[in-house]
Design a protein around this nucleic acid. Structure first.
Length: 383
DNA sequence: GTCGGAATCG
DNA sequence: CGATTCCGAC
């Protein structure tokens, strides 16, 4: 079970560099009162856990594609979870087929037992901005910061879990990571000990820096230019209210960790990360937020991210001048240190002179690039 | 193996 | 609503 801190918060031990999700979000098993697990969620769980690699696994080289190696065993596990002893692959596959129309899954034709997730659709639908009706707790500063575990009410909670699973999964694939470091007790057996370390495969980058863009294969999407998505259109497209982080004006703390009110998007996190160390994202420089206090989203505008230069509009300047290589390395490291330190997973600050420097830099750049790619997809809307 | 209609369930 | 169950068609 999850260890609680004196303040009732969950320690931030499962957060990953560049990807910050509180651990409750990874819980597979719904707590009593919440709705039952969905099949695609369950599939993601199995895929996440390498113990089931012989039963179901990702198809190498194809993002979101997975192969059911042992259909009857998957069905048996699913049946056990749902208390349906009569479950078999015939029935399970019917349920999977219902996902075709919902655009959660589609079949990889010609390959037997092979399906593919439509990540972009899922991520777009469940755009991770949640309004949480709760007064902000007093701000916690410095190293004593802990996550405010915010539980969205009702249906949103399950949506959030699913979304975060999907995001995690996606990021894992982007980073070449294989699951196993997240305690997922979906079999009723003993959960694994969580590990903060990303694991040996984490630093590898299967398709080259910056070129990973597995989403949006199902083309009827186009980019929303920065600043064009306002609260109203967000509401119209997503069916949920747009909420902006509030109560955080200065660059002194992480919004996600300290406001206790709002889960911010990865986009915001990227921007915040970049701003915090005055580190410019490659090719992006947002006027008014490159320096000085962190821009919250009071204006109900989406943070700007790199798109094509034409759609940048007035909110963004042309790409900033490139910083000297060593300087940006130092800044990258600084940001990563801040991030890790804040999330309690850094005992000793990383130092450029240490051997881990290059790996860290790589990891950081990697995370940033991955997040940029993911965030781009969040600005996709059906054409 | 795969697909999807139809009835049914919780 | 999201399966579950059953089944005929390809």
């Amino acid at each position: 079970m999850v260890e609680r801190m004196h303040c009732g918060c969950v320690p931030c031990s499962y957060w990953l560099p560049g990807l910050a999700f509180p651990d409750w979000a990874y819980k597979a098993e719904s707590s009593p009162g919440s709705r039952q697990i969905q099949l695609w969620h369950f599939i993601l769980e199995l895929l996440q856990n390498e113990d089931f690699g012989h039963v179901i696994a990702w198809q190498q080289g194809e993002y979101g594609e997975f192969v059911i190696k042992d259909p009857e065993e998957v069905a048996r596990l699913w049946g056990r979870r749902k208390c349906k002893p009569q479950m078999n692959y015939d029935k399970l596959s019917r349920a999977l087929r219902y996902y075709y129309n919902k655009r959660i899954l589609h079949k990889t034709k010609g390959k037997r037992f092979t399906y593919k997730f439509n990540f972009s659709k899922m991520i777009f639908i469940n755009y991770p901005v949640w309004d949480v009706r709760r007064p902000a707790p007093p701000l916690l500063m410095g190293s004593n910061v802990c996550c405010s575990v915010v539980m969205p009410s009702g249906v949103q909670r399950e949506l959030l879990q699913s979304t975060i699973l999907a995001q995690r999964l996606l990021s894992d694939q982007l980073t070449g990571r294989r699951g196993g470091h997240i305690p997922m007790d979906f079999t009723g057996s003993n959960p694994k000990k969580p590990s903060v370390n990303p694991g040996p495969g984490a630093a590898s980058f299967p398709c080259g820096l910056g070129s990973c863009y597995p989403l949006g294969h199902e083309r009827p999407f186009h980019l929303i230019p920065p600043g064009e998505l306002d609260a109203a259109s967000f509401m119209a497209q997503s069916g949920r209210p747009f909420s902006s982080p509030s109560g955080v004006a200065g660059p002194s703390e992480w919004q996600l960790c300290t406001t206790g009110q709002t889960l911010i998007s990865l986009e915001e996190r990227i921007q915040t990360l970049a701003q915090r160390a005055h580190y410019q994202l490659p090719g992006v420089s947002c006027s008014g937020c490159a320096d000085g206090p962190v821009q919250t989203m009071e204006g109900s505008k989406m943070p700007s991210l790199p798109t094509d230069a034409k759609s940048q509009g007035e909110s963004c300047r042309a790409p900033s001048t490139t910083r000297p290589e060593m300087e940006s390395e130092r800044l990258s490291l600084e940001v990563e240190n801040q991030f890790l330190n804040l999330h309690g997973s850094l005992k000793n600050p990383l130092n450029p002179s240490e051997s881990s420097f290059f790996r860290s830099k790589h990891m950081w750049h990697h995370s940033l690039t991955s997040l940029q790619n993911i965030s781009k997809t969040w600005l996709l809307k059906p054409a």
